[in-house]
Design a protein around this nucleic acid. Structure first.
Lengths: 211, 211
DNA sequence: GTCTATAACTAGATAGAC
DNA sequence: GTCTATCTAGTTATAGAC
């Protein structure tokens, strides 16, 4: 087994540290020290801290959106208009499942990235999400023909908000439940709970006031 | 008209800058310069940057939660079990309305705070949200008796996620809609859209798998 | 590719004059 | 309460040896 390259070790260390402490709070010294590399290695391999941040996101996000599309293809091959709940699982699971399997920390980081002030970073993050959003919007609209596409777009936005919040804010759930909910199993019950909540939300009758 | 105190000017400047650039990215020098105050004034009035941050949040959050409870009292005085949609408006509006009336930036900041790595700050932020959450959970459960309280707690969590996401991520909505949605009117149509989405989600049948 | 050394700068915090 | 001046410690980034 060959040892990981310096580049990979830097990406691993940065991902972990960014997730725990937030991007701005982590210094290159912490990253290189954690990765067992030299301070100058970041600039040699990535050019700057900002480019390292972009590389950290790119490495994970592309496979996940690819997985979403792959599963969506499979679902649509099996049935012309898949039911909404199945579509939601296909959309949410590649994200939530990763929390359990892979580096759990990365999804805290994705959540954090959504709140970053750096608009260019967010746009970059969503560079290949545009395709995913379009495909899923089409499928949601086919599954719920009573809801117009622009209304469905708002609802997808709300859904993404619920998902992101679930990924970062364990604390909030503990506080509002006063200890009754265990948020540490987001792959298990949380997925099904969010599917039920989201499906009902996407199917909701469109109110008069916004028609 | 008396001029605002240095304390207030510092709070105003910090709020604005934190909202636009993120908390970690703003220096005390920027804040004091914007407020027309001296660098040392922050330490004199607040003690440290962290204490200034806490003061910025405290000034706004307490009145909003108070308003939520005041309206909830009024609603419950008029009807024993108010309908879910009215409860949602009472919960969401004091937050969303502020975006239009008051300092619009503050709610970007609230959104950002939800993604902060500083757990102590988040707990402090939610110090008086516990009471609000309990009261609204009771009311939601009374309006939708089929859903158990712990399930309703998860759903309130999802709802808060949608609300927060709406407050910070205008960019995301523009990207996924490819320009079809105008996110710049969060008080108007967005409130009613989110009420419809959230009400349906809170009322969703509880799936077998989580019962 | 990896290292040391250091440049160039910025941060939060504080002492002490007024 | 407000100022200047400064301390200490941290940051990113780079030049140049190996």
């Amino acid at each position: 087994m060959t040892r990981k390259t310096t580049q990979d070790r830097l990406l691993d260390a940065a991902e972990e540290l960014f997730a725990v402490q937030g991007i701005a709070a982590v210094s290159l010294r912490q990253i290189t020290s954690e990765a067992g590399a030299n301070l100058a290695a970041v600039h040699y391999h990535f050019g700057s801290k900002r480019d390292l941040v972009l590389a950290v996101f790119k490495r994970r996000i592309e496979p996940i959106n690819a997985e979403r599309l792959r599963r969506l293809d499979a679902l649509q091959a099996a049935a012309d208009a898949p039911v909404l709940e199945d579509l939601l699982r296909v959309f949410l699971e590649p994200a939530l499942a990763f929390v359990a399997e892979g580096p759990r920390t990365f999804f805290q980081l994705v959540g954090r990235a959504h709140a970053e002030p750096d608009e260019a970073l967010k746009l970059d993050l969503m560079s290949n999400f545009g395709e995913v959003a379009r495909r899923f919007l089409d499928a949601f609209c086919a599954a719920v023909p009573e809801v117009a596409r622009d209304e469905m777009t708002w609802r997808l936005h709300f859904l993404v908000g619920s998902m992101v919040h679930l990924l970062i804010n364990e604390v909030a759930l503990v506080v509002i439940s006063q200890g009754d909910c265990d948020p540490s199993d987001p792959t298990g019950s949380a997925l099904e709970r969010l599917v039920a909540f989201g499906a009902a939300g996407l199917r909701a009758p469109v109110p008069e006031s916004v028609r």
